[in-house]
Every structure is written in structure tokens, then in C-alpha cells.
């Protein structure tokens, strides 16, 4: 019965989405928001129905309602884990790592020799599984949030560096020549032309770094942590098959990750309003 209802909902939502996507309102903002939301809701409904109908056991996959109940029942645990992992570990590492990368990128930009040397190395290191440094850094910096921040710094530094260096080179010849004819100093030209021109690249790097930061902070906790933190909670709760709690943490992590990403995208829209990709 539940399954039939769910399939009914699915068919209805699907029909509505197809109609909306191909109808006269297809370019409107409402449709652009409604279609993905409806799609996500359908997935949730199907998930719930499959669980309620007993097609999968709750120990394999808990229902969304059970996960929601778990979230509502344990806000203190989730909040403490969130503070430890996201605010202390990921965010501080993110700020230090991207900040350091910005500084080094500006230095690289000033010293062409350094750029020619560091950029290939950075490109290569950015593709490496830096995450493997996590066990080493945890033994160096201890179980606290500092070691998590260190892992995050190591992970975000090179991707960010490569992006910012590319960005600083993106101002056009003509624009640079114009600055030169105005007699702009190096600092003026950097501050007024090259840094603003680099912003789309900077934000691209920040977006990559944002998702890497959460990954780094959580994985580092698998190698040792105090008795709270999202990575710690996930690995211990998965060990005793307390899957509602695992999914609750995943939901928080997903929400934090998306919010972090969304915030950066929002700032980007404000800062790089002049860029073609931001125009409608």
C-alpha cells in the first residue's frame, strides 16, 4: 500500500517536473528551484516507502524519518561534534591553508623563477592523495583539533596555490599595459588590476578547498581524536551498527558542506559580479 502511494507520488512529481521543464515557464526561476527540490523530495519519499514496506532492514538502511528523529533527539552530541570538526578543525585549517596559498601565490607572481619551479610541482602535488599525510600529522600535532587543521592546511594549500597563480596571470596584456602607461607601481597594479582579475580563480580554488577541508578534518579523526568529533562519531557508531546516528552525522556533514559551499558561491557572486559567468 505504502509502495503504491509512493509510486503514485513519484509519477505525479515526475509528470509535474516534465511539464514544468518543457512548459512555457521553463526559463523562470521558480521552475529552476522547484524541479530539483521536487526531485529530491521524490527520492526521500521513495526511500521512506522502501524502508516502511520492509524491503530493506533498518540495520542496513534506516528510514529518513528515523534519521530525522535521531537528529531531533541528540542535538547536543551533533552540535559538539560540529564545533569540534567543522568550526575548529576544518574552518581554521581552511583559513590558514588558503591564506598561506594566497601569500605564496603573490610571491610566486613577483618572482617568475619561483613560479616556473613551483607551479609544475604544485600541479603534481595537487593530484596526490595528500590525505595519506593524516596519520603522520596526527602523531605530530596530537589528537586535538590542531592536527585536523594541519591536515586541512596540507590538503588545501596546493590546489589553492595553483588556482591563484593562474588567476594572477589572467589579467590581459592590454590591461597591464594600460596600468603601466598610467605609471602605476607594482603594488597599485597588483591591488587594482591583477588581484581583482584573479578573483574568479580565487573563488574556484576556495570552492575546491571547501569540500577538501571537510574531507580532511573528518578523515584525520579516524586516526585519533578526543571522544567527540564527526569522524570519531561516524567510525565508532558505524562499528556498533548505530546507523541512525551515522546518518544523522552524514546529514549534518552534508548540510555543513553545502552551506559552506553556498556561502562561498554567494560571496563570489558579490565580488565577481562583473564576470560573464555571473551575468544572467
Amino acid at each position: 500500500m505504502i509502495l503504491i502511494l509512493a509510486f503514485g507520488f513519484w509519477a505525479l512529481a515526475w509528470g509535474l517536473n516534465v511539464a514544468a521543464a518543457n512548459g512555457p515557464m521553463r526559463r523562470s526561476r521558480a521552475v529552476r528551484v522547484m524541479v530539483p527540490v521536487l526531485f529530491g523530495a521524490t527520492l526521500l519519499v521513495m526511500w521512506e516507502a522502501i524502508c516502511r514496506a520492509g524491503l530493506v532492514e533498518p540495520v542496513v538502511l534506516p528510514a529518513p524519518s528515523a534519521i530525522a528523529a535521531k537528529i531531533a533527539a541528540s542535538p547536543e552530541i551533533l552540535w559538539a561534534d560540529f564545533v569540534q570538526t567543522v568550526l575548529k578543525g576544518a574552518l581554521s585549517g581552511f583559513l590558514i591553508g588558503t591564506g598561506a596559498a594566497m601569500v605564496v601565490a603573490v610571491i610566486c607572481d613577483r618572482v617568475p623563477f619561483l613560479r616556473a619551479g613551483l607551479l609544475p610541482v604544485g600541479n603534481f602535488v595537487a593530484a596526490l592523495p595528500i590525505i595519506g599525510l593524516a596519520p603522520i600529522l596526527v602523531t605530530w600535532f596530537g589528537f586535538g583539533w590542531q592536527s585536523k587543521a594541519a591536515v586541512v592546511v596540507a590538503m588545501v594549500f596546493f590546489p589553492m596555490l595553483v588556482n591563484v597563480v593562474a588567476g594572477l596571470a589572467s589579467a590581459e596584456r592590454m590591461q597591464r599595459d594600460l596600468m603601466a602607461t598610467w605609471g602605476a607601481s607594482y603594488g597599485q597594479s597588483l591591488w587594482k588590476l591583477r588581484l581583482p582579475a584573479a578573483m574568479p580563480f580565487v573563488f574556484n580554488g576556495l570552492k575546491i578547498a571547501a569540500s577538501l577541508a571537510l574531507i580532511g578534518a573528518i578523515v584525520a579523526e579516524y586516526f585519533g581524536s578526543p571522544v567527540f568529533g564527526m569522524g570519531f562519531r561516524i567510525s565508532t557508531a558505524a562499528g556498533v551498527m548505530n546507523l541512525e546516528l551515522v546518518w544523522a552525522e552524514i546529514a549534518v556533514a552534508a548540510l555543513a558542506g553545502s552551506a559552506f559551499y553556498g556561502l562561498i558561491a554567494l560571496i563570489e557572486a558579490g565580488v565577481t559580479f562583473w564576470h560573464p559567468s555571473q551575468r544572467n
Binding site: 521543464a21 530539483p36 579516524y222 569522524g231 561516524i234 556533514a253 552534508a254
Partner: peptide
């Protein structure tokens, strides 16, 4: 396009390692 693309982007902001033990 409308329904999948936003979710594909969101899927990458979810820290996958959170799901690994799961």
C-alpha cells in the same frame, strides 16, 4: 538537466569520507 545537475553538485560538497564507513 534541471533535476539532476544541482544534486550532482551537492553530492560533491558532501564529504564522501563521512559515508565511507557507512
Amino acid at each position: 538537466d534541471l533535476s539532476l545537475m544541482p544534486w550532482a553538485i551537492i553530492s560533491q560538497t558532501v564529504p564522501i569520507v563521512a559515508i565511507a564507513p557507512m
